[in-house]
Nucleic acid binder design. Structure first.
Lengths: 218, 218, 218, 218
DNA sequence: AATGAATGAGAATTCATTCAT
DNA sequence: TATGAATGAATTCTCATTCAT
């Protein structure tokens, strides 16, 4: 008779690792399949085939097809949720920090483009998924952004902008550029690495106070 | 013996009107149903019920479910395709024009929020639909925007920005804000009318040359 | 108020002619359409389009789609039902008569090949249709054939064959050759005019008594 | 990790047997149902019910309804395709061989009457099916028959008949008799066992040369 | 845990037939 | 009588999910 959950039991530990690996294997397959066919058009069988396992096995790790999408969401969250500190690191200029931040965000978004293509449609269409993503990712991000902008304003380093709208505009611009690319824009697909600086050039003058505008970017 | 197509035949004219009305009735229902349940979860029966007609009737007006979505797309295109002239009307200041333009665009996008919620997910997931929308709407819009910005640059009224990326950033910001709202952002839902001015305040400094910045907005 | 059926009423007479013409028009269309697509794959709309009338009009002349097939059957019956007298015309030799008869039958069958292709599948599949065709066409034909053969046997002009099986073999051979052609046999399609004589050459020796075999065929 | 196809794997062997049994079970049901209702009037549900399985299960074994018919066709082919050698076995008389051959063919055809009733209508109506059946069964059979007759002619054992037409007449007679029975002829249904000899009596005199006609039949 | 055959609810689509004009 | 839009029953086929092995 097997003993109850004992994290120190080496056998259980190995089994847990195996299970985690299997989960990863399935989610990897789901990412590929959903990205290429879309969530609805993709079948459980597609995912199973891609993962090299049987259909039924997936149900040992995920309750149902939607749960598979939640799994992808969680993965995305893990990436999205750890935004490098928005607090100004010591003497760094606002401008320099802003550019670095944009660079990091664009990198994060674009490296997950496939995942986004798979998730976003369902995110827009499925209220449950949407609520979860909003609560877990968007809302905290916005709160963080608002706080950071508010701090800059208070410190006299940013103009007296509306923090809520400005944070949303910033996030929206990044998200919107991603969506434009997902919709087929080849220019963005080719030049997305220029986005951070272009965005910084465009936004910094309107965002920062004149005396904080000394920009030391690349 | 049926007579050949004769647009002056009053009977045919009435029938054409009836058919157009029925089409509209179906598209209205599709907008509502797709917006609330998403394209995939919505069934033809749902649309038929909402329209108060029989399932089969829909197929007298649309070849299949996807064609119904194309119908919505065409509707959206009709709205999107007539961008008020991007040329600077005579003496209008760049800033004033920019604000007016943003207002018009935001108005157009937000008045079609339901339609967008219905279409966007499938637009992202369905390559055919996506290609069509991109070719018919996004590409022309981008070309127009790029041209306008380039003109401003040449006239010395805009800084020497990259027209392609700037146009996309502008469009992306609007689109992204819409998407953020569709994802559940209540702040944007409540304050979307402030978006044009907030965006103008944020972007104008980075977009225009100092001597063109005399802003005569609200 | 229109008067009751009065065949002498010239107006009614003309209307009857019009109705008959419309019926013919519809049956012609049905023959073409059913022959090219098969009864099941053909739609009422196909027939209506081919006839150049509205779908609903067909229902003024035929109770339903199957009734249309009955109409074709009746037409075929009209052709099939008047087999030139099987009685030996006076001095004609058995052989000569046999050849003439085969020629006539092959001509009748092959000139209706399209109709047969349309009807036969449904005839085999639809018990009602089958029963009707059997009772109205096949059974009488067989009875006639049996009688004729029996008469020849009694007259000592035919060998003492089993009249029932021989009549069926004869009819079966013709029908079977038609079916083989309908199944795609190009040899038969090209050479069907040789069938009567080939069949006569093959069957006469086994059918007739030696002293009746003096053949005067072409 | 599933192992590669290994026909010696006993588990895979059993599964293959199970799958084959299920296929047979479905085809048996399809034969019954198609024979009684006709291919078009029969539904997949009918077949599933008759087979005692779920609708969907059929689609694990056949791509679609038409593929089910192809399955029946293949079965028929397996029966039809092995015609006992047409070569004269040594000393056997032409007549004796001919009777034996007819007996075998009639037996084969009539034991598949149900299958034929199920398939023939669709065979006539469906060009694809027809082409396949013609190429795989009829054409080879005709070629074989022509060759055999030609050989008899060359050997002086058959009259100088046209091999192509004679082979078709023979096949046509058998097929036609079957069709007549399928159309409802009760005489044939009752006496089909007499067909081979009746046919032989009727055809042998016209087919064979006088000195080969020594008939040693029942 | 893994498998994959079986399941059957559910959806899109077709089309014979009706009927108001 | 002719029309053809509207109807909705009926059918095929898909696929998420279950479960015996």
């Amino acid at each position: 008779m097997p003993v109850a959950n004992d994290p120190t039991d080496p056998i259980q530990a190995i089994q847990a690792q195996l299970a985690a690996a299997r989960r990863t294997q399935i989610l990897d397959a789901a990412t590929r399949v959903f990205a290429s066919k879309g969530f609805n058009r993709a079948t459980i069988r597609d995912v199973a085939r891609d993962a090299g396992i049987a259909d039924g096995t997936i149900y040992n790790y995920f309750a149902n097809k939607t749960d598979l999408l939640f799994g992808l969401l969680d993965r995305l969250n893990d990436t999205e949720r750890r935004p490098t500190s928005l607090a100004l690191a010591g003497d760094a200029s606002v401008a320099g920090f802003f550019r670095a931040y944009l660079r990091e965000r664009v990198e994060a978004l674009w490296s997950n483009a496939d995942l986004l293509r798979a998730i976003l449609p369902e995110l827009l269409a499925n209220p449950d998924l949407r609520a979860r993503y909003f609560d877990e990712v968007i809302a905290p991000t916005m709160a963080l952004g608002e706080g950071a902008i508010q701090a800059l304003v208070s410190a006299g380093q940013a103009r007296d902008v509306d923090a809520a709208l400005t944070a949303r505009t910033l996030a929206g611009a990044l998200l919107g550029l991603m969506v434009l690319q997902l919709l087929g824009d080849q220019t963005l697909a080719a030049r997305w690495r220029e986005i951070p600086d272009a965005l910084a050039d465009l936004l910094l003058p309107g965002l920062t106070t004149p005396d904080a505008t000394r920009d030391d970017a690349s």
